[in-house]
């Protein structure tokens, strides 16, 4: 039995259900599934562990200490979530506002210089945010934007917005603007046309683009540190600090809180992107 035989479709295989190949495929699937969920298992356990010493496979004592800490208003967690939101929400709104017209221009129109614009918009997906943040930080110092939330928003915006524009360009390239013309001939003004024709048509794409924009900002670490290290404390900074500090239970609980928006993303995206398309919704998240 060769690997390829095992991987390619078992065309005209035996009629009986269980074959060696089937077993191998099943085993590989189980391994793959375990590998994908693997990192979450000790994370969940740790977040409820009181003491979990080597070599116990499960903690001898359970507790909610880590979660109590996370929920404690006096601790740093809630302010950190607030900081993260204060950055990610404006980034999301700005990204959406920028991506709708830009995506429309790129998705529906041909014009001279289009390739250069596309290239520019793609570039932040290739050039590390680290480089951009290190460079722009010099300017921000001069304008008093360093160590501020506004400065962080501006830097996060580059990656979030460029991604949102790419998604919206894709949405608009599948969009037929003739419906707008029909609406106009039926007496709708520009605003009514946008509200009743364009907006509903692009809404699923816009939701996905916004979710991406939010998640990209939410996950940022090094750019935030460079622009406002020590002043703006986002949740991601807190999580990384905890991971470095070795408090495993708290690190685990924080990680789970940190994953929240991603889970929300999956739930919302699965509503807007049905079936096979849902895979496309994940595109671009490396």
């Amino acid at each position: 039995m060769t690997t390829a035989q095992f991987l390619t479709k078992p065309i005209a295989s035996s009629r009986s259900g269980l074959t060696l190949m089937g077993l191998l495929r099943g085993a590989a699937l189980v391994l793959l599934a375990l590998w994908l969920v693997g990192p979450f298992i000790p994370m969940l356990v740790w977040s409820f562990a009181h003491r979990w010493t080597f070599p116990d496979l499960l903690p001898k004592q359970w507790s909610l200490e880590a979660w109590t800490y996370v929920a404690d208003p006096a601790a740093q967690v809630l302010p950190a979530i607030l900081d993260s939101l204060l950055i990610a929400v404006p980034v999301t709104l700005l990204s959406a506002a920028i991506a709708i017209p830009a995506g429309r221009a790129l998705g529906l129109h041909r014009f001279r210089g289009k390739r250069i614009v596309e290239f520019l918009i793609l570039a932040p997906n290739i050039i590390p945010g680290l480089t951009v943040a290190l460079g722009i930080q010099i300017v921000f110092i001069n304008y008093g934007l360093d160590n501020t939330i506004v400065g962080v928003i501006l830097v996060h915006l580059v990656a979030s917005m460029s991604y949102a524009v790419l998604v919206m360009a894709g949405v608009f390239s599948n969009y037929d603007p003739e419906a707008e013309e029909v609406a106009r001939t039926l007496g709708a003004n520009r605003f009514q046309t946008f509200l009743h024709v364009t907006f509903p048509a692009i809404l699923p794409g816009l939701v996905v683009a916004s979710l991406f924009a939010f998640l990209i900002s939410w996950d940022q670490y090094v750019t935030t540190i460079i622009i406002a290290g020590g002043f703006v404390k986002t949740l991601s900074i807190l999580v990384v600090a905890a991971a470095g500090g070795g408090e495993r239970a708290i690190t685990a609980a924080l990680s789970i809180v940190f994953v929240g928006p991603a889970i929300l993303f999956l739930i919302i995206a699965s509503k807007y992107l049905t079936g096979e398309n849902s895979s496309a919704g994940g595109l671009g998240r490396r």
């Binding site: 614009v117 932040p124 460079g135 580059v158």
Partner: peptide, 19 residues
């Protein structure tokens, strides 16, 4: 395209340039 380009030039290109 202007808002998108503004962000790209001001922050992205600017950041690279100053870097």
């Amino acid at each position: 395209l202007a808002p998108a380009l503004l962000v790209l030039f001001a922050v992205f290109i600017g950041g690279l340039g100053f870097g």
